[in-house]
Design a protein around this nucleic acid. Structure first.
Lengths: 194, 194
DNA sequence: CGACAATCTGGACACATGTCCAGTACAGCG
DNA sequence: CGCTGTACTGGACATGTGTCCAGATTGTCG
């Protein structure tokens, strides 16, 4: 798990004071989405809620997509590493890992939809985060599969995971059924391998 | 394959004249994306290019996302049914189908990225199209797998297909490698089943 | 032809976006 | 304590968004 103390900057290196501002902004964003939905989310609204001038918000985030993507990244970074019991099957570990990832934003559908959309924005800042998020997810899946990993299997799990999150984020699938769906998938891909 | 003569309306039933206007708009949108990229795409710009007043464009499309999603839907609807040779293996048919779907917008990366993003927009009009697109893709996959289809396999292929399109649309994967990636995936899922 | 209905126009509206910059507040240091 | 630099402010700017509607244009049919 990535340490929260990383104080990783959305755009550059941050002082303590700036980090606090960014925290206020990301958490205000979450509340704004909860209250007004994603379409009702505006950078200025978030700034107001965070008690900060709009220009300040734009100092750290280029767009609301960037802001929301940062929220998702923070949640992922804060998600505890899945406990991987090496005595149990690969399948079991993969199931657990995928379920953890799938449920990251499951409790807030509005937020989930927002993240799903925002993360795909054609904005360079968003792209950086998107890549980072993708890499982190893949790392976790690789970890779960373990050393003997068939790269094709990891690729497949990775693609399916992306697909699953998108489907859930757009309402095709409910988050509640995601873990089962992903477990089925993992079973098919991993066969009955140890 | 859905007949082009369906004259299916983006919003309601269209007269011939309106259908012509919509055609002008969708094709203008493609050219605008080509020339100015997705961020440079504006509804008013598209309207200008189509030789139509902005208000007219808004009569048919609620947003640029709606417009771009319609472009994708039209391409999908116009994509000839994959020739499914029943004498060959399921795997072979699935590979061919997935490859066809994957390459829908492959020749224009800007457009592909635009569609990927636009299709996920939290706009009711877009949602309708998204559902339709999802259903059509699934139908094609089901057709390829054939009657003895294990629903879990179809689900898995469907999720992975979504994931693959997203990854390609965001530049994580190149469209060139998509068919191979999907073929690997299909092989894993279908095993060596007939 | 002439009239009616469907369609498109043009421009105004209120609001959001993202950028910019001169000016203010404030923390930390000598 | 006063200086200095960093961080934030407030408001203006140009542009885009989506909606509205009175009026012009077009096609169709009696």
């Amino acid at each position: 798990m990535l340490a929260v103390t990383d104080r990783e900057a959305p755009r550059r290196h941050l002082s303590e004071r700036q980090a606090a501002t960014v925290d206020k902004l990301t958490s205000a964003a979450v509340h704004e989405v909860r209250d007004h939905g994603y379409p009702g989310l505006t950078v200025r609204g978030v700034a107001r809620r965070a008690g900060v001038a709009p220009a300040t918000a734009y100092t750290f985030f280029t767009s609301k997509e960037h802001l929301v993507t940062e929220v998702f990244w923070r949640r992922l970074a804060a998600l505890p590493e899945t406990r991987l019991d090496r005595r149990r099957t690969v399948l079991h570990r993969v199931e657990a890992t995928l379920a953890d990832l799938a449920l990251l934003v499951a409790d807030e559908p509005e937020l989930a939809a927002a993240c799903t959309f925002a993360m795909l924005a054609p904005d360079p800042e968003v792209r950086v985060l998107r890549d980072r998020i993708g890499a982190e997810m893949r790392r976790r899946v690789e970890d779960a599969v373990g050393d003997g990993a068939d790269p094709a299997v990891v690729d497949a799990l990775d693609l399916a995971m992306t697909g699953a999150l998108v489907r859930a984020g757009t309402g095709h699938l409910s988050y509640a059924e995601l873990p089962d769906r992903l477990a089925d998938l993992a079973r098919l891909l991993l066969g009955d391998r140890r």
